[in-house]
Design a protein around this nucleic acid. Structure first.
Lengths: 112, 112
DNA sequence: CAATTAGTTCTATGAGTATCGAATAATGCA
DNA sequence: TGCATTATTCGATACTCATAGAACTAATTG
């Protein structure tokens, strides 16, 4: 991976609101046990992660947790996807979202 | 550590030039074996890391490797220090610089 | 097909960032 | 003490970013 890719990943995580969005998704997808109890984040009606490793209705749920307009949140999702940090697939009217483990590992490798 | 601290750390690494500066210092301080041979970065007259874990004349050396004005590089050093990623101490006319392991570990912990 | 729900795109705006060159300060040496 | 070296600060500029609201598109459901 190029230096510029790493810079883009860090850029995606450099905004506090966007970092929060990423961590919500990360927590739900990669640490579901922790997240059900005492999560730093709260979703109306609970989070629920039916398929392991991914989060259904991710956009909707994130919107419910944050004081940002939907357009801004949409923009942040795009940035996270462009950086390769998350992967979203349409599921009817909503999105199922998962974390790209390879990218997360790349960060860990860089700082090994 | 607060979410905003993490965001600041990522912000410091989000600019490609600044990331390069950080990685030069990181490589010299934390992976000296690798860096002496076949480093991605080159310093006039070699790097040399007399005291383990720190890099002498860091600013000067970084300036020699990069096509940026000294004022810009100075600014980038400040950002890296403010984020807590590096620690610089004056040594005569130059600076000895080291990586703040705690902050690096905090990133790894966040993505554990 | 009409109505509803979910998310996107466009446009505007204020704030922040990267960069440089010039002026300035700090340090050590002759 | 004066000079050279090293780094910082200042001011300007062009650029990027975060954000909201309005208009729009896509999918589902009655």
């Amino acid at each position: 991976m190029e230096l510029s890719n790493y810079a883009n990943i860090f850029k995606a995580l450099s905004n506090e609101q966007r970092l929060k969005i990423f961590l919500m998704i990360y927590e739900q997808c990669c640490k579901p046990e922790e997240s059900q109890v005492g999560s730093k984040f709260e979703a109306k009606g609970g989070w629920c992660c039916p398929a392991a490793g991914s989060l259904e209705k991710a956009f909707t749920k994130v919107c419910d947790c944050m004081n940002l307009s939907r357009s801004t949140i949409s923009h942040h999702f795009k940035e996270l996807q462009n950086a390769g940090l998350i992967i979203c697939e349409r599921e009817g009217r909503t999105f199922r979202c998962s974390v790209n483990g390879e990218v997360v590992n790349a960060i860990k490798e860089l700082l090994k």
